[in-house]
Write a protein that binds this DNA or RNA. Structure first.
Length: 153
DNA sequence: GCCAACGTTGGC
DNA sequence: GCCAACGTTGGC
């Protein structure tokens, strides 16, 4: 038994949006091909954790919804599929390189909390996603940041 | 479309 | 192990 954690997970809505997740209810969060993010998927994200769904590379980048981790890290099968866009010949099924979690849609926020808005708040200055040059598609969010952001809604 | 920032690869 | 070249991310 360990404390639950909070996360922020980016996705380009043109490939997978909060609406897509709402329709599908539960989805594997696959295709992550960055070692730092992989380590979080594999080692830190646990069933019961909550995550912000963040839309990136779109007209209004920002937080759009909330989801729950319903299965902790397990090998990402798309890495083994030569037909898949995320195929990685270096990932051996006996020693998988890439991991994923399963997420479940909880709800959309009543409005988009845009990146530009997040930047305005002093209390959020330490958020990893706001730090210069940050490109990680998965970042931890502190409970304080989580609660603060939800009060903005 | 531009470009800053960063990660990965591979030659040496 | 260094580091230049290259690829990717993602805001603007």
């Amino acid at each position: 038994m360990s404390a639950m954690h909070y996360w922020l997970m980016k996705s380009e809505p043109s490939s997978f949006s909060i609406e897509d997740l709402r329709r599908r209810k539960i989805e594997p969060w696959d295709g992550v091909r960055n070692f730092q993010a992989r380590n979080m998927l594999r080692d830190e994200m646990q069933k019961g954790d909550l995550a912000f769904f963040y839309h990136s590379s779109c007209a209004e980048p920002g937080i759009v919804g909330i989801m729950e981790i319903v299965r902790g890290g397990y090998p990402d099968p798309t890495a083994f599929d030569p037909m898949d866009h995320h195929f990685d010949p270096a990932s051996d099924p006996d020693k998988p390189r890439w991991y994923q979690v399963d997420v479940r849609f909880k709800r959309k926020l009543r409005r988009v909390i845009a990146l530009a808005e997040l930047r305005v708040h002093k209390k959020l200055q330490g958020m990893q996603i706001l730090l210069r040059g940050n490109r990680l598609s998965i970042t931890p969010v502190s409970k304080q940041e989580w609660d603060y952001i939800l009060k903005l809604e």
